[in-house]
Simulated assay, not measured.
Amino acid sequence: MTILRMIAAASVAVLALTAEGTADERPTLRIATEGAYPPFNNRNADGELVGFDVDIARALCDRIEMTCVFVVQDWEGMIPGLLANRYDAIIASMAITEERSRKVHFTDKYYATRPAMVVPRDSTITEATDAGLAGRSVGAQSGTTHANYAEAKFPSATLKPYPIPLAYQEELQNGRLDAAIDDLILLSEWVESDSGQCCRILATLPVDEAINGKGIGIAVRKTSPDLRDAFNAAIAAIRADGTYKTINDAYFSFDIYGD
């Protein structure tokens, strides 16, 4: 029995337990995403999962002839949930890092981006350096490469972890936080929205591969190398046939795949 058929057999009961899947005649694949990280994965006004990660997941599932069943999982529990067999893969803007790779297999990247720092519009902070942030509070989503980056690069600042980006954004709006670090695209989208008018991008930060990783990939269990390989072939296929570009252009004005 192939790994995909084993996954399908283990996943049949999931459709009865989640409202996110659409049943058809194809086997199901349980995909974890956060649902709180726009524009990559979040819920729309109707409560439906939307975003770049979600559309990419559906395109990849189509390529491997399976049906995505989405499981919403908080960020801190992503890898533990995968290892506990609550889902089969993570497609949630997860960076490919050495530390995570000790626990899971990653696919090739399906996009890449850079970290950035945001501050209130009237902030007196002039540079995103340790000296420039000394004595300041810097917010980041806990358990992310961005939190690790802030801790490593800005030791003179006070790192404040938050469960989701919305939490540190509200702190910035209310004047209770001096700065925050996150993905450049997420922050750029936010400061251009109504809720982000309080703030501005201070700087795009240099990538440190040891912290930021080698792009964004799909995580699977180490016992699922065939699934990883199937995803890799599917990523290459949607890049080649224009599907990736169609999804990309629905969200971004540039190729998010990177170099």
Rank of each mutant, 00 (worst) to 15 (best):
N44G: 02
G242I: 06
R43I: 03
D241R: 02
P161W: 00
A147E: 15
Q173P: 12
R200E: 15
N42A: 11
A230V: 01
D226H: 04
T67Q: 15
S123I: 08
T33K: 03
T97I: 12
D24W: 02
T243P: 01
T28Q: 08
Y149A: 12
E34P: 00
M117T: 13
V14T: 11
V54L: 05
D108R: 14
V72H: 01
A19S: 15
D182T: 09
F154P: 12
C199E: 05
Y168M: 11
F106L: 05
K245H: 10
T97V: 12
A210W: 00
T144Q: 06
A167G: 11
E151T: 15
D249Q: 11
T124H: 07
I216D: 01
V207L: 12
V191K: 00
I90Q: 01
G77P: 03
K160Q: 14
A240G: 02
R200Y: 03
H146D: 14
D194K: 15
D183V: 02
D130H: 13
A134S: 14
A95G: 08
I185Q: 12
I256M: 12
I31M: 08
T18N: 10
N148Y: 08
S253Y: 05
C198P: 12
P165A: 08
L187M: 09
E192G: 09
D183Y: 03
N212E: 11
S137L: 04
W75K: 10
A13F: 06
F231Q: 02
Q141D: 03
L202I: 03
F40A: 07
M94W: 05
H105G: 11
D46M: 08
E76D: 14
Y111D: 09
T129I: 01
G47Y: 02
A13H: 13
N174R: 11
T246P: 01
G215P: 07
A236P: 00
I125D: 12
G51M: 03
N248V: 08
T97Q: 00
P27M: 10
D108G: 13
M117H: 08
F52W: 01
A179G: 06
T18F: 12
N174K: 11
N212Y: 02
V69G: 06
I181F: 00
G215W: 06
M117N: 04
N41Y: 03
R228N: 05
R63W: 02
A234D: 01
P206G: 01
G213R: 03
A167P: 09
A89M: 13
H105K: 10
C198R: 07
E99D: 10
W75A: 12
A95T: 13
D122K: 11
P163A: 11
V118Q: 04
A131K: 11
L172C: 02
P206D: 06
G217S: 04
A23Y: 10
P80Q: 06
P120S: 09
I3Y: 03
P80K: 07
Y87W: 06
A8T: 01
A32T: 03
L17Y: 07
A167E: 13
R100K: 14
D74N: 14
A250H: 13
R102T: 00
P27T: 13
E76C: 04
R136W: 00
S156C: 00
D208A: 06
